[in-house]
């Protein structure tokens, strides 16, 4: 007589297994994946409620909410992966209002055939990032699409947070005379990603700067509650962020090329690829704009934090009906730092 073990379920094969359509079908395979992977990695009291929603109490005050979808390619890159990036990205979007991020949600779109070992690596990296940030992932969702209809894995994260009393940070608050600061070296993330893309056989010691900035923001807001604007210069880089802020605040800006911190390696890679570091993405940097009289204190606070060690004052907000962002070049001339058109392309000749 054969002996069948009661309720035996073969564990998910995280070594050689691959995502298949059953992992998104709502059946036993999906429940098992959620249980063995997501629940065990993200474990917290809210997930343990095992409901379709997370229920939590919030402090009183102004709440903020931000969402961000992550489709980065390659999924793993020097200094990080799509997992930690998806946590940092949303934590930072929430934090740029001056808020303390509280909770995150995570939605996964997996492509059929994606190795479970890679998925596990990504989820564990997310869990680590969330734990380090002190912002739990309290609810989630998983969908599977047929092969060829995704790019391995897409992750959407949404975050909520609460703004401390007396803080009013918004992209439309830059005023002529305000000072513009950045929290460190620009272009690391974009160049690290670009160097990994297969068509560019590049070997560079540059790592992505992906990091959660809410700790830095909390210190900044405490020292200078009157900060006018905060934004993380992700896609499109510093140039795009400054143009957005100039447009929103209906002001102009003048920055000094010589004051903008860019690593030598990043400069060299950009030179080689025909890119401008001002347009290259960052994932662990922020731009701050504050009244001139508070700039010194803000700079000192930023520099005292590990994620703001290389912070610098890079320019001023000006009155300008055209909302131009202008730059005094290190060469001694002037030029516009314009919105990016299409994608940055290397020179032909």
């Amino acid at each position: 007589m054969s002996e069948i073990r009661k309720n035996y379920i073969r564990p998910v094969d995280f070594k050689h297994g691959r995502v298949d359509m059953t992992h998104g079908s709502g059946g036993r395979a999906m429940a098992q994946l959620i249980d063995e992977l997501f629940m065990s990695a993200f474990d917290n009291e809210f997930l343990r409620q095992q409901n379709d929603q997370a229920c939590f109490r919030v402090p009183t005050g102004r709440m903020v909410m931000a969402t961000d979808s992550h489709v980065v390619s390659p999924l793993f890159f020097p200094g990080g992966d799509i997992g930690c990036l998806s946590v940092h990205g949303t934590v930072n979007d929430v934090a740029m209002s001056g808020a303390q991020p509280l909770y995150l949600s995570a939605g996964f779109i997996l492509e059929e055939g994606f190795p479970l070992a890679d998925l596990k690596r990504i989820v564990e990296s997310m869990a680590r990032a969330a734990m380090e940030a002190g912002v739990p992932i309290v609810t989630g969702d998983t969908k599977v699409v047929e092969q060829g209809k995704g790019d391995g894995v897409f992750i959407n994260t949404t975050g909520v947070g609460v703004v401390p009393e007396g803080v009013d940070i918004s992209g439309n608050r830059a005023r002529p005379g305000d000072v513009i600061l950045v929290s460190g070296h620009l272009g690391d993330h974009g160049v690290a990603i670009m160097a990994q893309r297969e068509d560019l056989a590049f070997d560079l010691p540059i790592r992505s700067d992906t990091a959660a900035l809410h700790g830095l923001v909390a210190a900044m807001v405490e020292a200078v509650p009157g900060i006018h604007c905060l934004r993380d210069p992700t896609r499109g880089g510093l140039a795009t962020t400054l143009n957005e802020l100039a447009q929103q605040s209906r002001a102009g800006m003048v920055i000094r090329e010589g004051a903008i911190p860019v690593r030598e390696e990043v400069k060299a890679a950009c030179e080689f690829l025909g890119l401008d570091p001002l347009y290259v993405a960052n994932e662990g940097k922020l731009v701050a704009i504050c009244p001139a009289e508070e700039a010194d204190r803000l700079l000192a606070t930023m520099r005292a934090h590990p994620l703001g060690r290389d912070a610098a004052v890079i320019g001023e907000v000006t009155e300008d009906a055209h909302h131009f962002v202008q730059m005094e070049t290190a060469f001694g001339g002037k030029r516009i730092v314009d919105w990016l058109t299409g994608e940055q392309l290397p020179r032909i000749c």
Partner: peptide
């Protein structure tokens, strides 16, 4: 010339 603002000089 445009990028470095040579004309200004």
């Amino acid at each position: 010339i445009s990028r470095y603002g040579v004309e200004d000089l």
